[in-house]
């Protein structure tokens, strides 16, 4: 297990290195940073002045190392638009994204794993069909549409829940449902498929031959094996929820980091975009690492590899 963990850690480090380099190169891929900073009315001389002032004229590797060195210390530079340290902005916006992401993935898991298990125990039963229905609807219905529907029902008609802002926990209920429901179909289908396959396996027959009770067979012997692919999927979904919730964040005016990135792209506010992309990528890498560890714990055969 130790060797496996170290191997994964090394791999994660390499990926992080690559990702940071790509993120950095965004500065140059998007447009010439000096031109962007100087604004539309700037003269050539102004642009050249900014170029030297910010060091854009130095060799790219030097710039990268300097940028990476500062990023490690939490210094992502200053926002072109807000004229504030990027870290201050992140510090403000990240918690909102995190809370929403954690709530949404928890909601998705709590809903989809039991449903997937139940559907697999009785394939083609009423419950299975209901679960299928839920997942088909979830897949077909665009998130923003569900969001508007919920706002209309719970926010406007019933007046039960707040619909904009992020001040109290109540503000997170609707966005959690919308974002969580989006991830539910995939997790549920994968749980169902995995359980169906495992329930037909020889070792489940052995467990039954030992006279074990149904809960022990289902949860000890079957679910642990069935859930292995689900772990990786949930990790990806979680990462996606953190960064890809821009639509949801803007509908509910939850000003999280995803929303910040989206705004900043429009404003050509590169340091902010870079910082958000980097933070989310690193988060993704950590998630993948953790899900690999969890899988290794679930399946001892992975540990040797």
């Amino acid at each position: 297990m130790l060797v496996y963990t170290l191997k994964r850690l090394f791999l994660a480090f390499l990926v992080a290195l690559t990702v940071s380099a790509i993120t950095f190169s965004l500065t140059y891929l998007a447009s010439d940073p000096a031109t962007a900073m100087a604004g539309e009315t700037a003269s050539d001389a102004d642009i050249e002045y900014i170029r030297t002032l910010y060091g854009f004229d130095r060799p790219i590797t030097v710039q990268y190392l300097e940028w990476a060195g500062r990023a490690i210390q939490g210094d992502f530079g200053e926002s072109f638009y807000f004229k504030l340290p990027v870290s201050t902005l992140l510090f403000e916006r990240l918690p909102v994204s995190m809370i929403l992401g954690v709530c949404a993935i928890s909601f998705a898991i709590i809903l989809s794993i039991p449903l997937g298990v139940l559907a697999a125990i009785r394939p083609n039963s009423f419950l299975d069909r209901m679960a299928l229905g839920i997942s088909v609807v979830g897949q077909a219905m665009p998130s923003f549409w569900l969001a508007l529907l919920l706002i209309l029902i719970f926010g406007v008609n019933l007046n039960l829940l707040p619909i904009t802002g992020s001040e109290t926990w109540k503000h997170f209920i609707l966005p959690t449902i919308v974002l969580g429901y989006y991830a539910t179909p995939a997790i549920m289908r994968l749980t169902r498929t995995g359980m169906l396959e495992v329930l037909g396996s020889d070792y489940i027959r052995t467990a039954r031959a030992k006279g074990l009770s149904l809960p022990v067979i289902l949860f000890k012997h079957a679910l642990r094996n069935a859930v292995i692919p689900v772990v990786s999927l949930a990790a990806v979904q979680f990462g996606f929820m953190l960064g890809g919730s821009i639509v949801i964040e803007s509908i509910f005016a939850l000003h999280g980091a995803g929303y910040l990135a989206w705004e900043s792209i429009g404003r050509n506010d590169l340091p902010v975009v870079q910082a958000v992309v980097l933070v989310f990528s690193l988060f993704y890498i950590v998630l993948t690492f953790l899900s690999d560890l969890l899988n290794a714990w679930l399946d001892p055969r992975i540990r040797v590899g």
Partner: peptide
């Protein structure tokens, strides 16, 4: 009665044990 007063040994030893649990765990279970 199963696993207690009557027990079965299967044709497929490679797949009849649960990969996720130790031999001891599975032996002690019944």
């Amino acid at each position: 009665i199963r696993g207690n007063r009557m027990a079965m040994i299967f044709q497929e030893p490679m797949t009849s044990l649960n990969p996720a649990y130790t031999i001891g765990n599975q032996l002690m279970e019944p």
